[in-house]
Simulated scan of single mutants.
Amino acid sequence: MAKNPSWILKSYATGMPSPDNWVLEDLSMPEVGDGELLIKTMWLSVDPYMRGRISPAKNYAAGIPLGGLMTGGGIGEVVVSNSPDFQQGDVVISDYFGWQAFTTVPVASAKIVDTKQAPVQAALSYLGMPGLTAYFSLLKTGAAKEGETVLISAASGAVGQIAGQIARIKGFDPVAIAGTDAKVEWCKELGYRTGINHRTSTDLVADVAAACPNGVDVFLDNTAGPIHDAAMLNLNTFGRVAVVGTIALADKFDQPDVGLRHLRQTLITRARIEGFLLDDFEADYDAALVDLSSWYEQGVLQTREDVAQGIEAAPYAFVRMLKGENFGKQLVEL
């Protein structure tokens, strides 16, 4: 048995990534340096932004060099601490977990997880990056107002399922776009007024128009691609578009994003299109988590998880998430 099975990036993906882009190596237990924690990994998160980490192209997330250890968000138990702020047995979250059974993370990146508040993995979902992304992209970047129609792509995913529920709680009119009929039905259970299966749609522009008879006021774009085009052609005057993710481009990450040009549409509608990065809202995380926690405790916020088992599953879970095959927040449990 491997001492510390670890996923190493073997090659950059030129199209849709494949598990063959990584190799599982048998590494020794990591040495714990100054200002580091040795962690036994419990949960790993795989997220769309990590597509940029396995490309040599410039990106907002730091890239992984060939031969380097794959990293991402994770939760685990402290085995060795080189900090008085963390003790052996503490459960912590960090964005710098290696894809390995035992990993080291910088103390500055680690935060203790309240294991009594909610299931531990919630810190990687609705009480973590996806929940905060949904909260700020909808309420701050999208600046949605009561009664406005909010169109959300990847609506059953980690961010979309939370955004739709926040929209319902706040009195907005949420409309889902998802990739299967089952996902659309799940979105309706969460409080979306209606939904569209973009994979079976033969005229996405017309389907968005039918689902949003009063037009689209706010579009949370988690995908890019043809869904973005359909939303833009239904956008109301002074509409807002929050570009949260581009997962539809995962198989052509290093290629130009070719499609309709919406300059005339943007001019006529005076729309605002703004890129969204969660780090820009760090000062307000605590206030947002109070809301998210309260909604969870009240029973008005729920989530669905798609859990893969074992460190061996990590790249497979990542690729299936990029392909939209997951149903809910994609996690890997060790």
Rank of each mutant, 00 (worst) to 15 (best):
F238N: 15
G225V: 02
I196E: 05
G171T: 05
R168K: 15
P130I: 04
G171L: 04
F219I: 00
G215S: 12
G239D: 15
L151A: 01
I152Q: 05
L220W: 12
S201I: 01
D173N: 08
G191I: 01
D229A: 08
G191N: 08
A134M: 08
Y192V: 06
G128V: 01
K145L: 07
A163P: 13
D173R: 12
C212K: 07
K140M: 03
I177S: 02
D203H: 10
V208N: 01
S201L: 13
I177M: 07
K145M: 07
A155W: 12
K183E: 03
G225R: 10
T141D: 05
A211E: 06
L204I: 02
V216T: 08
A209S: 06
G191L: 00
L235P: 14
E185T: 14
D181L: 00
G142E: 04
A167M: 07
I152E: 14
A143R: 13
G164C: 15
G147S: 02
L220Q: 11
G215I: 01
I196D: 11
L233H: 15
E148W: 08
A176P: 06
T202Y: 07
G179L: 01
D221M: 04
C187W: 00
K183A: 01
A224I: 08
A167V: 07
T223E: 10
G195S: 09
D229V: 02
A167C: 13
K188L: 09
T200M: 13
G195F: 13
S156Q: 03
I169E: 11
H228L: 15
T149K: 09
T223W: 03
R168P: 10
A206Q: 15
A163W: 14
R193F: 04
N197K: 11
A176H: 00
T223K: 06
A224E: 05
G215D: 02
C187R: 10
V205M: 04
A211R: 12
P213R: 09
T180I: 03
S153V: 00
G215V: 01
A231W: 11
N234F: 09
A167R: 06
P130Y: 11
V184P: 12
K140T: 10
T202G: 12
A144Q: 05
I152W: 09
L132M: 13
N214V: 00
N236I: 02
M129L: 10
T194K: 09
G164Q: 13
N222E: 03
L132G: 07
A230P: 06
L233G: 09
A210D: 12
T223I: 14
S156Y: 05
F238I: 13
K145N: 10
I166K: 11
I166L: 15
V216Y: 09
V175K: 07
P130R: 08
Q165L: 05
A134D: 08
N222K: 12
L138Y: 03
I227D: 07
I169P: 03
A158W: 02
E148Q: 15
A178Q: 00
K183P: 14
T200W: 14
